[in-house]
Design a protein around this nucleic acid. Structure first.
Length: 451
RNA sequence: GGUCCCAUCGUCUAGUGGCCUAGGACGCCGGGUUCUCAGCCCGGUAACAGGGGUUCGAAUCCCCUUGGGACUGCCA
């Protein structure tokens, strides 16, 4: 951890794809560790594979992190005292370091490549913050399939450094105190420690995070569906929900608390309390977490979260007062697991055409239609736009049903369909009140529910 | 094959030798509220992989077995 407990940690993605769930999880835990300790979060781009790395992917990874609210203190573009933060920009550093290893006889050139001589008879032991003590014989750290010792490639024939070499050079060069990364790197760590030792460098602390698995318990991949964080954004998951859910994979703040915000997570986070067991990504739980955050939002925030989806659906959001739409969402209550769902479920507040496309009223028998005409006719006659209030409408409807020997349902359901085109909605009278008398009259008239 | 790692309800987890006849949450199944659905409230289902030790006592410590996973690239 180093001086005063402040950690210097880094998230080091290679820009060969969008920010996926696994990467986001790693980034999140690094961010949490940095923020909890009051330390520094570094973003380093590992783009030594120039075949697959692109600036576009680099940007989308940054965008993904920004969406999740994971801000970094040092990194490309932003800069910092230990830059550059893109491996492609510091190639000569790696060759220099490799040269010192060649001079000391610990590495050798073979063609254009540089190989590290793996020593035998040494024991490599380190204390992983999460996994505990790991110990491997040096001759087992890098082997061929037949079990013989295999020297480690430091510099590839094209002059670029390998991952295992660059990561050591950079973590040391950037004064990283704690390397927090996925468990898939656990087996690489002994190789890296060998390089640290050869260079006479202190090793940082290591903390390997459990992997995130799909429902089939296999490492999360494309075949499990959405893997990019932006796919979750598009599906209508809030960034705070994805943050919350990801934090729960391998960690808990304690006291059975499961729904929390970033501030709470930062305060409670403890790297040493992270679980070792791989965690299965469970969409059902994500839905639940999302719904909880959705319910907890104030009307304004909720409106701002839903608005983009309404626009995407083609609605002219701007023609409605924000208060009207906010109230519509308040009425929606706990309905909808995602912002996208909520936007869809509430579409009739913005547009009557969608209602017409869903409902024809041809399920209404002539007798029932007479009832509706009588009831709604009287209702429209009785209440002016100023008196068009939920409680009054409901009282009237109940009273009318009583005196006419009709169940409330007989009135409520057609009203619900006429207004929303759906069989599921918030309370009809609240809905009617918000939509307003005149618009209700028009909608009822369209279906022939008023004389 | 080799090396390393992991193992509590279907899932996420609490649990660090006695408070565990194993707790919470999601899911699922009932019931209640009700103009529908969601929500909310109440209840239920369901786990310490197996076997040996250690100990007065083990989900917790050790060993073995089994089952998973990672790595074993001049990818990262």
């Amino acid at each position: 951890m180093s001086k005063n407990g402040k950690m210097r940690v880094r998230f080091a993605p290679s820009p060969t794809g969008a920010l996926h769930i696994g990467g986001a999880h790693t980034a999140l835990f690094n961010w949490l560790a940095a923020r909890h300790s009051g330390g520094t979060f570094i973003l380093r781009i590992e783009d030594t594979d120039n075949e697959r790395s692109t600036p576009e992917y680099e940007q989308t990874i940054m965008d993904g992190m920004a969406w999740l609210g994971l801000d970094w203190d040092e990194g490309p573009k932003k800069g910092g005292p230990k830059g550059p933060y893109r491996q492609s920009e510091k190639m000569c550093e790696y060759t220099e370091i490799a040269d010192t290893l060649i001079k000391s006889g610990q590495a050798y050139r073979d063609g254009d490549a540089v190989f590290f001589r793996v020593p035998t008879g040494e024991q490599i032991t380190f204390d992983d913050i999460i996994y505990g003590e790991i110990s491997v014989a040096s001759e087992k750290a890098s082997v061929n399939t037949d079990g013989t010792v295999k020297d480690i490639v430091l510099i590839k024939s094209d002059g670029t450094p390998t991952y295992n070499f660059a990561v050591v050079a950079d973590d040391h060069g950037m004064d990283v105190t704690t390397v927090i990364r996925g468990e898939d790197h656990l087996a690489n760590t002994p190789k890296q420690i060998l390089i640290y030792r050869a260079l006479g460098w202190d090793t940082p602390n290591f903390a390997h995070l459990p992997m995130i698995l799909g429902a089939d318990k296999k490492k999360l991949s494309k075949r499990h569906g959405a893997t990019s964080v932006f796919e979750y954004k598009d599906m209508g998951y809030l960034p705070e929900s994805v943050f919350n859910f990801l934090a729960l994979l391998g960690w808990t703040p304690g006291n059975d608390v499961e729904i929390f915000d970033r501030f709470f997570a930062v305060e409670k986070f403890e790297l040493s309390k992270v679980t070792k067991k791989p965690a299965v990504f469970d969409m059902k739980k994500l839905d639940f977490v999302n719904q909880e955050h959705l319910k907890a939002m104030d009307p304004r925030a909720r409106y701002e979260a839903i608005e983009p989806f309404w626009r995407e659906m083609g609605f002219d959001v701007g023609k409605f007062p924000a208060a009207y739409l906010e109230n519509a969402l308040v009425l929606m209550g706990g309905r909808g697991k995602t912002t996208r769902e909520l936007a869809e479920f509430s579409d009739y507040f913005l547009d009557f055409d969608v209602v017409k496309s869903r409902y024809t009223a041809n399920d209404i028998t002539p007798e029932r239609r007479e009832n509706l005409k009588n009831c709604f006719g009287e209702m429209l006659w009785k209440f002016s736009p100023d008196n068009w209030e939920a409680e009054k409408l409901e009282d009237f409807a109940r009273g009318w049903c009583d005196t006419n020997g009709v169940s409330l349902k007989e009135i409520a359901m057609p009203l619900r369909f006429a207004l929303s085109g759906r069989k599921v909605s918030p309370g009809v009278f609240e809905m009617a009140a918000l939509i307003g008398r005149d618009e209700c009259r028009d909608r009822l008239a369209h279906f022939g529910f008023v004389g």
